[in-house]
Design a protein around this nucleic acid. Structure first.
Length: 264
DNA sequence: TTGATTGTTACCGG
DNA sequence: TCCGGTAACAATCA
């Protein structure tokens, strides 16, 4: 479910609905009872996203930290409360709405120090205006690992997931197996800018859409991805190569994304 | 029941 | 230190 856009969208939405309100926090399946007790009936101050991490800050200086992992889900609905659908770990309710969180890999209460540590171990988040891309570029330039790995490493750039990885590199004509240290500053800037652009589209549309024609039209029809999960390249028509990067599927068009030593 | 899936971390070994 | 590999965990759906 989540790449960075999902979490940022939820943060924005939940902040609007919950900031300044006293929340009733419960653990319907009893799998987060201790944490829910620490936060129940506290006033929510902010809801913020850091990469794929969602953080609800409360007035007692404790925070709820959520990471959805591969298949966690967030649902927000207007009251009245409905019976939990599936395995709901934690439920938060104001006087108008409630949020259910299903299947997160991380669901924990952190203090301020722990939140700081979390933020510090993440790289700059392409969706945050305060992000400094220079930090990401330095790390990429010092690494011999393939760029396809590096841009999905959350300690280097926060927010990009598996689908965006393949799509961004195709859009920028950069082969995923080029080592980080061979990526020029200009090529890095194109990756960063395109990531920021596409993730922002994702926040707005609540979907991963990387095909320009679809981004710029209101139609519901049309392909959402250029090459992810596809057999051939929409630009040149050649067959795509399927590969695995860290056990995750990836795609490349060897014609449009040549494996060069130097990228301009 | 099996497999696949928009993710991450810990740990071991070279 | 860097890097690859593996396992573990999470929930749902076809």
């Amino acid at each position: 479910m989540p790449e960075g856009h999902t979490i940022h969208r939820a943060a924005r939405d939940h902040h609007r609905a919950f900031a300044g309100q006293k929340l009733s926090i419960s653990s319907p399946q009893g799998r987060f009872s201790d944490g829910a007790c620490l936060l129940n009936a506290q006033i929510c101050e902010t809801v913020e996203a850091f990469g794929k991490h969602l953080v609800y800050m409360f007035q007692n200086k404790l925070a709820l930290h959520i990471h959805l992992g591969l298949f966690g889900k967030i649902r927000k609905l207007p009251l009245p409360l409905k019976s939990p659908k599936g395995a709901v770990r934690v439920r938060m309710a104001s006087t108008t709405h409630f949020v259910d969180i299903n299947g997160p890999t991380i669901c924990e209460v952190l203090n301020q120090e722990e939140i700081d540590a979390l933020i510090n171990r993440l790289g700059p988040d392409v969706l945050r205006p305060d992000a400094n891309p220079e930090v990401s570029f330095q790390k990429i330039q010092q690494s011999g690992l393939p760029i396809g790995r590096l841009i999905m490493d959350q300690s280097i750039i926060a927010g990009i997931g598996n689908i965006y990885r393949t799509e961004i590199l195709w859009r920028q004509a950069i082969h995923p197996e080029i080592p980080g240290r061979a990526i020029s500053r200009q090529a890095f800037d194109r990756i960063w800018d395109d990531a920021a652009y596409l993730l922002a589209i994702g926040v707005k549309k609540n979907a991963i859409i990387t095909v320009d024609e679809k981004i710029n039209s209101k139609k519901r029809s049309g392909e959402k991805y250029n090459i992810f999960g596809k057999a051939s390249c929409p630009k040149c028509g050649e067959g795509l190569r399927r590969l695995e990067i860290n056990k995750r599927r990836a795609f490349v068009c060897e014609t449009c994304q040549p494996l060069l030593n130097h990228i301009n």
